[in-house]
Design a protein around this nucleic acid. Sequence first.
DNA 1: CGTTAACTTGAAAGAAATCAAATCTGGTGG
DNA 2: CCACCAGATTTGATTTCTTTCAAGTTAACG
Lengths: 219, 219
Amino acid sequence: MLPDRPALSPERKHLQAGEALFRQDQPVRAVYPLRHGGIKRMYESALGWRQLTGFMLPGDVAGLEPNDAPQFGTSAIALQASECCVVPLETAKRCEEDPAVHAALLALLHRDALRQRELLVTIGSMKAAQRLAMLLLDQAAEHRRRGTDGGEVMLAMTRNDIASYLGLTLETVSRLLSRFASVGLITVRHRQLRIVDEKGLSDVHAEADRITLRGPDPA
Amino acid sequence: MLPDRPALSPERKHLQAGEALFRQDQPVRAVYPLRHGGIKRMYESALGWRQLTGFMLPGDVAGLEPNDAPQFGTSAIALQASECCVVPLETAKRCEEDPAVHAALLALLHRDALRQRELLVTIGSMKAAQRLAMLLLDQAAEHRRRGTDGGEVMLAMTRNDIASYLGLTLETVSRLLSRFASVGLITVRHRQLRIVDEKGLSDVHAEADRITLRGPDPA
DNA sequence: CGTTAACTTGAAAGAAATCAAATCTGGTGG
DNA sequence: CCACCAGATTTGATTTCTTTCAAGTTAACG
């Protein structure tokens, strides 16, 4: 008797690169566990200033807003062809009755809040090289946590996206990537990135002035 | 028969300037509506980087954490002699059963999240003068919302606090305040501040390059 | 009244942004 | 299949902004 309601295969949504999954200030009607691809979160202030606030990978849940916010706090935009589930808010609420699910969602929200604070302190007080090192280490850790490839990371975002996330310009990001590569911390060819010396990157992240834009003075 | 349980006058806590109401990572056992004084919120990353994430005024509720986080995400430190109520978590939970209270608390949390995003975009993409203008306008709005004095604001925080909040150095903040004063946007004498030209400050906040550290070129 | 912390101001150095070309890439249409 | 194009990326030169370093000055507090 059940009509075509896909009981075990909930609704999916496919996105092209650049397409918005949802936009800031729209009412929250569903949450979107990401299956394939990658998504960036973008905040736009009333005056038009934009800032990327995070990148999401498969396994992350897009649209999860803290404290049941009625509207999305950021836009979610696909970095590449992507696919996600669509879990209507009502369904999500029902799932939350399971304490284990509830706890898991809270854990996601807490981690997100922590990340937000880390991003703030990073942008607020670290030099460009340290900020970039932080992002690279973070990306590597995320990929590792998912078991995706070992070391070789395909960046889904552009230099501009990275710059917006870190509060820098795309030129600075490009230069720093080249610089990191030239001192053997990474190898990078456009979007293909490999972390060669993770310990070294950690050092850059921790200690200021280890890597700057200009190379060692030959004088 | 009731022992000395202050039914109508809940427990109060007094703080001296510089004293911590609670510290980051401590378990949340109570929330603290601020009655008098002022408090700064400070986040410290694992590597020791610090960042002020906000200032609280009487009427704000310190210790309110998003999504029932079990530990405080930031430390709360008194900027001056202050006094706050102490509402044990259990009591707070009971209050929350009142839908109106619940909604009010959610509203506070949502506003806080919005502020966090605004701070991020401000630090991430604005010039120093714009950042400071934002803070001053924000402070003025907060004071106005509370009906506190008209225009004349007593800043509770040091230049260093402002700098940490905005991702600048104290010298830059000091210079900019002087500069704002010299072009007639504000008057400032140490902590005593008055906004003379709010529209002008808005313009500085919106349009880049209206005010820079060096004055007009006399050439 | 003196000591200390906060604040202001100047000069110099340094970091990142801006301006300006090249170069590379993936995808498109011929 | 290949030439071409728009967007992405790299790299260099220059400019601008902010920090850093260094004194002074002022204000708060015991």
